[in-house]
Write a protein that binds this DNA or RNA. Structure first.
Lengths: 338, 338
DNA sequence: GTGAAAGCGCTAACAG
DNA sequence: CTGTTAGCGCTTTCAC
């Protein structure tokens, strides 16, 4: 259908291609009101739609950026993606969201694909396994920002939560409520996010003179978390409190509890690191550690845009505090995403 | 950084551009093993990365498709998007997800933008307000499929849930449990999805000889749903059962219930039309009507791809059944997305 | 103010 | 098997 090009419009309007081009970029100073009208009319008549692809080829700018999330099934990722998409949309740009599924191979494929498509920049939740690629981009001056996870040795701006301190507070809260047997359940400690949360846990126990007991610390693939929980709760000294280190682990805990008829809030206290929709509306009300997805997403977008516009940016980590939302009392309202 | 083009590679390898091009499209039959090696070496040495943009311009195919969701805050939209993204990824294509926020203006802007970017096709959750645009695309032979909502008068393939029957079953279930005062709460009846659900509600009541009482039927903007609920529950004959017509309304109901100390499952029975994560894990266990996001997403993607490949497709509606997941008993497990 | 001309980086006949 | 030759649709000097 759409074979009408600028040349057709030019002919129809009786002017040259360049004039039409000027018109399209709204530089009306360079033409008489009359030509302007003729062009308008011709476009209308022909139902012409410009081809941005051709323009991008020439301008070397696609007005598209890529977002590569590690695992889209974390609600945090969805929220961030939405914020980023909003931001760039306000700047007449588009965000392409890709899901690497925690697979370094997929991540590599996406990075290469998106760069081949000439996207103007990338926001990555890095798997951490493609250092060569990361380095290549950063050294080549290609706009990148890392999100959620630190990548040691790669000098790119990085947006992260204050994982350690947030977990510290959550554990502290348990302790203040009299808990002594406090467990933590996490996925494998392969990325900074998870190790930082582990550190926060240990630091809190230490600060309050409690023993760090490895048998209370789970780090396992999602598929085997359930098994670990069983071990934990059937052991001689089961935990009285448990922190799920992210929302995916949290689901496992809930399912485990349900299956084994354990009452959350009665048989053990539960908190979770991550934004959980509904958390404030159901029983048991669950204490959560909320990350600032809006703030983090906007910051990342802003820094990426700066790089795209050739402004210098710091490659320091930018750390966002989390919010501990205590909900034993069923009182506090969560002002979340909904 | 990346100013190395095919020409550079050709020169480095001592062959012509066309040969390099052949190499890149893996047509090795057309060259000697030696040239092949030379090219490989040159690419390696120069760290060359092809520019897909230029290729797309020539081939008139970008290997990108667009998804325009009406409101990304519905979990259903997220699930569908993910399925579509997966599908196209397996076909070495990319999906761009955009959020129209139920705003016809935004929808129009996105459609135009994506088409200008030459995406190969569009999957749209239509607002229903841009008929001229829809028609223009369809008549021009541009690949489109509608999702979730019917658009009368536009001959494009449409994937929908069996909204009427699903609601019918849900209401029937209420009735069988002895409820007589059954309410429904929905957003404004501006799209087929919502009117069909309303119809299902009415049809079920009629079938069982119950009166259709307009004061039990809420249709209001999310912001005013709460107020309507108040009216409903403080009226002379409050409902004993309520169906929330989607997940966003559901949240409002939960918040309303919490504020007013109404116990779901005791003070009134509650069901919701939509996939709700955790629904099976919390108290009260909520009866849900689950849509088949996987099936619907895959079907839409498949049909779009057919169109892109110039295959003929039916423009009939394709209707997917929903699943009523009854959870008063806290028994049934939901095999959802997590 | 307006037009002619030279590409952007790649593909696709068509010769040789 | 390999090279030559035209463009894809648009932007952008630089003359007129």
């Amino acid at each position: 259908m759409e074979k009408i090009t600028m040349a057709d419009v030019a002919k129809e309007a009786g002017v040259s291609k360049s004039t039409v081009s000027q018109f399209l970029s709204k530089r009306y100073e360079y033409m008489s009101g009359e030509t302007r009208k003729k062009i308008e009319k011709a476009i209308e008549k022909l139902n012409y739609h410009p081809n941005y692809l051709a323009r991008s080829l020439k301008q070397k700018r696609t007005s598209m950026i890529g977002v590569i999330v590690a695992n889209i099934m974390h609600r945090f990722s969805t929220e961030i993606s939405r914020v980023i998409e909003d931001f760039f949309n306000q700047h007449d740009m588009h965000a392409i969201i890709c899901n690497a599924d925690n697979d370094p191979g997929k991540e590599r494929k996406y990075i290469e694909m998106l760069r081949a498509k000439q996207v103007d920049g990338l926001i990555i939740f890095p798997t951490g396994q493609n250092i060569d690629l990361y380095t290549n981009m950063v050294e080549g001056g290609y706009p990148v920002v890392f999100m959620d996870r630190k990548v040691p040795g790669v000098a790119a701006p990085t947006i992260i939560s204050n994982n350690l301190d947030a977990v510290y507070s959550a554990i502290e809260h348990f302790i203040e409520n009299g808990h002594q047997q406090i467990a933590i359940a996490s996925q494998p400690l392969t990325i900074s996010t998870r190790t930082d949360r582990y550190e926060g846990y240990k630091k809190a126990l230490e600060a309050y003179g409690l023993v760090i007991n490895p048998s209370l610390m789970i780090n396992a693939e999602i598929k085997t978390v359930r098994k670990e929980l069983e071990r934990l709760f059937t052991s001689g000294s089961p935990p009285t409190a448990l922190l799920a280190a992210n929302d995916l682990v949290f689901i496992e805990v809930l399912e485990f509890a349900k299956e084994n008829n354990l009452q959350v809030g009665e048989d053990f206290a539960l908190a979770v690191f991550d934004n959980i929709p509904f958390a404030h509306l159901v029983n048991p009300p669950v204490t959560t550690v909320a990350q600032s997805s809006r703030g983090m997403g906007e910051k990342a977008a802003e820094i990426l845009l700066k790089q795209i516009n050739k402004e210098k940016v710091d490659t320091n980590e930018i750390v966002f505090p989390c919010e501990l939302l205590i909900r034993e009392s069923s009182e506090k309202t969560w002002s979340g995403f909904w």
